[in-house]
Design a protein around this nucleic acid. Structure first.
Lengths: 248, 248
DNA sequence: GGATCGCCTTGACACAGATCAAACGGATCG
DNA sequence: CGATCCGTTTGATCTGTGTCAAGGCGATCC
């Protein structure tokens, strides 16, 4: 698995862009100094596989920049995305030898890695890290359960609208945008990846996006750049309870 | 929300049937003594609601006996099960005010409860509890991701076979059965609950169960008692990678 | 003993989304 | 500049599952 060289602007943890949202969020200066010593960066190009399900995995990591996906594949090739990791999200599981999912870079990704054993030792010593990881894992579990509702019960149209809303909201958080009733962003996913996220075929994704366009709920320039003129209008199509939250 | 009186055979934690698998699994004698003081039991009849999504929730709990379900409901009534809690599973989230899901007793349930605030304080003091909760939450997240693959990509037939395999496996663990290639158990769920678990309608569940019966993969007595003559044969229908594990 | 109820099964039909197929548009390459 | 490729769109058709409807079975109640 070829791997890019680490980014040039090697950072101090104190200046890290995900310092206050990642697994290290609660660490004090001393703890951070320890992490600073332990960490190393790895970069992955868009499309590159970080690790295959079943492979031995002797590190854990935080996504610093870029987006990565977790996918599961059945023997006959049917594929389901089961995680979409944005900056600050955590990869890997303390106490596990082997990767449970395929992890792939959706676009160019930089990860902040720790060898598993030292990280586990650190977790045993510094409750701050374990506490934060628990919190993040509980958040991911909630997200997974929302996702289950989407997969099990929503229509194709509702699925697309939900995904657009999710991405718009996450991008808004990352960019710390002021809350607004409209949104513009670049889709990080191809139609096929959206299909893998939503449990649809790529043709159905394409058709439903065209339908939303036709209905004036979104506009698209050049396949990727999405504009949501009225976020509330889109939210009504997601099937979710109203006031699920503004895009920030 | 009416609530049964606590069970007569109030237990000491040391004799608790879920002592070694619940959130308290790692506690030493001293920690257990503290929990023993804090805990109180609540019982729920089959079908009774433990808490509604959105309600204030000032306790957390472990399922001691029985089975409970977590469900999400859309405005128009579409329902998706997002959690199936067996004995030793944990209910509620430290640091959250309000229930995120409807929690309902599937059959008669006894829960070991802790008021939230004292439990949170305890967690901050005794890493053993937080560690175990992290481990359990990570397990649940893995289960949720398997479930997502099922919801997004499996056929109705595969879904039914998968659910039967899951239940057979869990029951085998609970009863500490010797591993065996066949299995007999009572379905804890109605057809409608199975449908809510699988993202299907109850009619499709019924039809697919009939089909599996017709194909000799299972036999059923009186709607609930299921026999799986050859577990491996059933596993081939689940669509999962082979050697997903014996029913124990 | 019949009425009622909850849960389940089965049938007929409809439809949302899958499948198969063709073609488009922009980027890259020679 | 044309050729190729990748991601995408759109059309035609098929099919698995949903929907609507009727009826069965066992338990409980009067």
């Amino acid at each position: 698995m070829a791997q890019l060289s680490p980014p040039n602007d090697m950072r101090q943890c104190g200046e890290c862009p995900i310092r206050h949202r990642a697994v290290c969020a609660r660490c004090d200066a001393d703890e951070l100094a320890v992490l600073d010593q332990m960490k190393y960066y790895r970069s992955f190009e868009a499309g590159q596989t970080v690790i295959w399900s079943g492979d031995r995995m002797d590190f854990v990591a935080s996504v610093v920049t870029g987006i990565a996906k977790l996918t599961q594949t059945m023997e006959d090739g049917r594929r389901q995305m089961v995680g979409l990791l944005m900056p600050s999200d955590f990869v890997g599981r303390p106490g596990r030898q082997v990767a449970a999912y395929d992890v792939t870079a959706v676009n160019d990704v930089v990860m902040c890695c720790f060898r598993k054993k030292p990280f586990e030792d650190l977790m045993a010593r510094t409750p701050h890290v374990a506490q934060r990881l628990l919190e993040m894992t509980l958040d991911e579990l909630d997200a997974a359960r929302e996702w289950m509702l989407l997969l099990g019960r929503k229509t194709a149209r509702e699925k697309i609208a939900s995904l657009l809303a999710i991405i718009a909201r996450r991008e808004a958080v990352l960019k710390a945008r002021a809350p607004s009733s409209s949104a513009v962003f670049d889709l990080p996913l191809t139609r096929e990846e959206m299909a893998d996220y939503l449990g649809l075929t790529l043709e159905t994704v394409s058709r439903q996006i065209s339908a939303l366009k036709r209905d004036g709920l979104i506009t698209i320039e050049g396949n990727r750049r999405v504009t949501i003129p009225d976020f509330n209008l889109l939210m009504e199509v997601t099937g979710d309870d109203s006031d699920g939250g503004m895009p920030a």
